[in-house]
Design a protein around this nucleic acid. Sequence first.
DNA 1: TATCAAATTGAACAACGTTCAATTAAAGCG
DNA 2: CGCTTTAATTGAACGTTGTTCAATTTGATA
Lengths: 194, 194
Amino acid sequence: MARRSDHAPEELKRLALDAARAIAAEEGLRGITVRRVAERIGYAPGTIYNLFANLDDLIVHLNGMTLDALADALRAAADAPVETRAAQLVDAYFDFVERWPMLWSLLFEHRLPEGVDLPDWYRPKLAALIALVAEALAPLMPDLASDERRATTATMWAGLHGISTLAVSSKLALVVEAEPRRLGHLLVARMLGG
Amino acid sequence: MARRSDHAPEELKRLALDAARAIAAEEGLRGITVRRVAERIGYAPGTIYNLFANLDDLIVHLNGMTLDALADALRAAADAPVETRAAQLVDAYFDFVERWPMLWSLLFEHRLPEGVDLPDWYRPKLAALIALVAEALAPLMPDLASDERRATTATMWAGLHGISTLAVSSKLALVVEAEPRRLGHLLVARMLGG
DNA sequence: TATCAAATTGAACAACGTTCAATTAAAGCG
DNA sequence: CGCTTTAATTGAACGTTGTTCAATTTGATA
């Protein structure tokens, strides 16, 4: 059987990614297999390889979608009044992580095989995310050189990331009883000079 | 063939873990397979299951060793003079991550299947690590309630973790040109109130 | 209507984690 | 020393995985 063309190639890609996302959201990285994704969209395993180079490629694309979704989730908070903006960004970040813990985990849990690095289109997505936050927080760091502003933003971003990673893998609770969100607010408050 | 007893069971466990560590240090999580570990120590795959419940169990044990090694690496810095202690802890942390990037990654990259959680002996290892840092830094946070001290320590720890994770997976460099270590120092300085 | 091109398949392969009956060597005993 | 018991070790086997690719079938083209 061949050339069903039930769906245009781009449409089919979307279907596959949606299927993968559904699996990932429920079971995490371990649940994503080529055969299961294919089965969910009613195609044979081989078809996946017409759409993506391999399973890693599919997962990287899924992570790209998640990055976009995270950017969307942060955008509203980035426009909040300056006084509450930082806190709202932190809350928006943790809201996202708590709503999609598995998808968010996948963002960092998945690693390409040695020697393979992230595709070129991935970098701008990440950069856009950071730029969003950097611009939103710039007014809150008026006395810093742009170099230091970037470093501060990156540190906060990495810090939130660390808190969330440990929380999601339930390693934070082993060590402290505080809510991840509270640590996030603490971090940002101190970083912005409190 | 059976009952070779070339090695006592504990000795054999050590051999298997050393083999797994060597593989992990070179190739990361993806390189660790039961068959390869078994081959490296000159035993059949089935033997691994006499020593560990399964591959996940073996990896958790390997991670336990890494936690111990990290604690050792931090201990010297924890005894440094109070003035430079925080900075030395940060340096010791990044020294460790840079020396064993793959082993350090494995600590967080590996996740148990859903429903399985970390064994009981794992928690004290993590707790010991945090306690080490918390006690070392306590003199630097004299004006904080013990509750806030714990939160601050956990935040710094998670922050360093986040910076390192992103650095090791080369996602930090996509976003900022600064050295991870520099961000670490920035984080700790601000968290300790400067 | 015949031809072409592209999409889709599914069998095949190697490698994986895991299980377990069979085997063998060491230990215990008379 | 020989016999029995016990426990360590094996390796074949099973089901599943990612990936490849020749074969096939359909939609479009001429």
